[in-house]
Design a protein around this nucleic acid. Sequence first.
DNA 1: ATGAAAGCGCTAACAC
DNA 2: GTGTTAGCGCTTTCAT
Lengths: 335, 335
Amino acid sequence: MDRVTSKDVAKKAGVSQATVSRVINNYPHMKQSTREKVLKAIQELGFTPDQIARSLNMRKTSSIGLIVGDISNPFFAETAKVIISQARKSGFDVILTDTEHESVNLEKSIESLVGKRVEGIIIGSVDLYDSKTRQFAETGFPVVFYNTNIHEDIGNYVVLNNKKGAKVGVKHLVELGHRKIAYISGTLKYSNLSGRLEGFKEALKEYDLPFDKHLIKEFDVSSNGISTFLKAQMEQPNPPTAFFAASDQIAFTVMEAARELGLQIPDDISVIGFDNINISANPFINLTTISQQHRRMASIALENLLTLIKNDNEMIRNVLEPELILRSTTTTPRK
Amino acid sequence: MDRVTSKDVAKKAGVSQATVSRVINNYPHMKQSTREKVLKAIQELGFTPDQIARSLNMRKTSSIGLIVGDISNPFFAETAKVIISQARKSGFDVILTDTEHESVNLEKSIESLVGKRVEGIIIGSVDLYDSKTRQFAETGFPVVFYNTNIHEDIGNYVVLNNKKGAKVGVKHLVELGHRKIAYISGTLKYSNLSGRLEGFKEALKEYDLPFDKHLIKEFDVSSNGISTFLKAQMEQPNPPTAFFAASDQIAFTVMEAARELGLQIPDDISVIGFDNINISANPFINLTTISQQHRRMASIALENLLTLIKNDNEMIRNVLEPELILRSTTTTPRK
DNA sequence: ATGAAAGCGCTAACAC
DNA sequence: GTGTTAGCGCTTTCAT
């Protein structure tokens, strides 16, 4: 069962291949009768144009690449949703790759996507100062980073003002009366988490809170070290009254650990997250958090990419404003 | 800045295009010196082979398609993760499309993917008896359904024994002492949800529980009708003591509605879900549910697809066994 | 061990 | 309006 080609259609319809092509591409100036002849032949043979051949010829694939750190992470799933749906409306398919947070996989993905001649790439997870990716972004190939970037002076991106986000969070806690706040970060290889930590530190200064490096911990999201950390903190003579998690996912782990220790949230400790993924609004979780408007972020990223694809040599950067989402895991400290 | 091609490399290295091709493809019988010459030219020109041209020639794209109903739904995100990671290990990229649960989008996706000459397609959401998709699956194109199928006699698939799953759930509730169980289904256009409802009904018979059609409701996942339904049920003289949700997502909504009504779970009502997505294990949710081993399901789906791609004319069907995941949203009924 | 030439399935001038 | 021809960037016989 060989593939049926436009040549076969042409023969069957008694026309040239060019005419078949014209029908496929809705070329207007054609005799209605020949168009119908061709359409009929296409029907009968069950012909579907080979987009690969088409792409080779036209030097456009109508595909873009989307690279994320972990598609099973709701943040990426929810942003991918937006990008994929919106891309389809503009006639693009998306090749999705998951780096599992390994920068070597990012590089491989880029290579593979470029080889497949995608027209642009959206990248959700990139290490700070990743030199290969930086180099690539500077070739002029349409690339948009979102969520994380390499550096504020490199490439096109749409990110949150993460520093400010952390400050908004600290402000909220301080206003509730908290004076001793622990901070639990994910890996600092990403600009967003690193920015948040910076913001946290700056906020401490602004509110004249003492800086205690033991109150700050860098962890993997999944790490059960979080539980150990929490326990150690709470056993101190003067324990923190609030925990600031650098992401909602981390906050969930903190909440879980707190529960294991028999601590009530928010009565015993306040917990605040960062991202505002969908599930955080669930009433059984109901996490106070900082929104980074991630769906909007994704939408802008795609829009910008399409712009870059159309017009070379643009440069587009967006920095979104954080927003406090007040829910029920934070309250005034005990006593 | 024109693309650099293998022809350019050939010229620069002073060899033929064929030789460049041989280098790219690691053809063994070559003089070491010419290989190095070519490699050097590739380096200097920054040449990356055009996979589109390659695909056209070799009739293989090293891409597969993955079609899901909603990638922001954790079930699909978590299964997509498995499929994408595993596919990459076998040298395949995946083009992901999201149908937003519209069967017309499924059909368009298939068309687009076939046009792009993917080597196979994995489909996570298909309506019962969808005739176009059925037709397509019967052409012999490598297709594997998972999670839902068209009919048990059609196509290749890996699904759960959903009927049995529902029975396992009812058994659990009955053993706890529940005699009046409400059932909240999602749309019945999918084989999995429809199978679960069937299983629920059969289980009622098996345990001699009275069938009351008012206890069964078909809803959209997001529907706030669920809240209305729950309220109506609880205002009855003899309200149900347990609610069986056809998916974890639906169960979350039920839990939410229960909380709004001031009902304690599991003390006032028991709730059981279906799927066992990651977040269900969160201690603040801690949902009793039926596992469909979704990651394993995804892994098998990909494996089977790869088999189909290698060997035509196979026929592979897997039906996985459900498993009760006992957590804390179910207990003995009051009184 | 390497080169020449044909061809994958389509589109795009250019003719008529 | 439609056909002819060349070519997109590779791989693959077939020579040598």
